[in-house]
Design a protein around this nucleic acid. Structure first.
Lengths: 132, 132
DNA sequence: TGTATTGTACTATTGTTATAGTACAAACAA
DNA sequence: TTGTTTGTACTATAACAATAGTACAATACA
């Protein structure tokens, strides 16, 4: 267990992006897990405190947390808080490769609709990784 | 005049991004103009054909075109079509980078929910590129 | 035991987005 | 001329997103 607070995380909301607030929150939590800023057992901000922080409605934060819980990414205990759970994804290597190819193809075609080349994307990803 | 068709352009819609369809279309057109894939006089797809292509409602495409016309970026002649006008579309590197970041984050969070690491994704992309 | 904190569950309201469907108007071509 | 293609305009509907407000339930702590 690592019931550490995750207060060092800085959430932010862009009201002009067109992306729903609750999805922006989900995205930021997913990204934080992906690059290890959030680990198993870490506690997320309370719905009320994050709502105050982002100047949005507590219901909106709760909606984000609920969706993450449905997907098994966090677990919540009423009266205690919401915590990162340890979701294990089980897949055989063939299936994994297939899925990676599929979502990568989708991503590349989307990126090219905006005029981004695969070189540009690789550079961008490398930069992201070097920033650790 | 350059009344060329702009059929080589591949538009795409991501229904899961949270970004409204009409805004996705607007952004893709703006970026195509900014990096000269679309030039003055080029004809955009008709509202009906693009709607069929993207499997969305013609009204949604029309909404995107209308907003672009309000901003002077395209001009429409009823019975003829919608064309790129000669208004400058500014897209500095910062803005472009921001957009690349957003769609990349989208992709990474999806990938990480399947258990893929950034490292793995970069390797996969490198393989794809070497295969050219 | 209280008391504060946490998540949950409603209702109601507002604005945006996307859809279906219909009809009309302007340009063009045969 | 007639018919096709183009964009436009409108109504109505449904779903979603975010808000305010209120109340309740479970936990932790002093």
């Amino acid at each position: 267990m690592a019931p550490k607070k995750a207060e060092e995380l800085q959430f932010s909301i862009d009201p002009n992006s067109g992306v729903p607030f609750y999805k922006q929150i989900i995205l930021q939590i997913e990204m934080a897990i992906a690059d290890r800023r959030l680990k198993r057992g870490n506690q997320l901000p309370t719905v009320r405190s994050l709502a105050v922080d982002l100047k949005i409605n507590p219901n909106t934060v709760a909606k984000a947390y609920n969706q993450l819980e449905l997907r098994g990414i966090v677990s919540t205990q009423q009266g205690t808080g919401t915590f990162i759970s340890d979701k294990e994804v089980e897949m055989d290597d063939v299936e994994r490769e297939k899925i990676l190819s599929q979502i990568t193809r989708d991503f590349l075609s989307k990126a090219s609709s905006y005029g981004f080349s695969i070189q540009e994307i690789i550079e961008h990803l490398n930069e992201l990784q070097d920033r650790e």
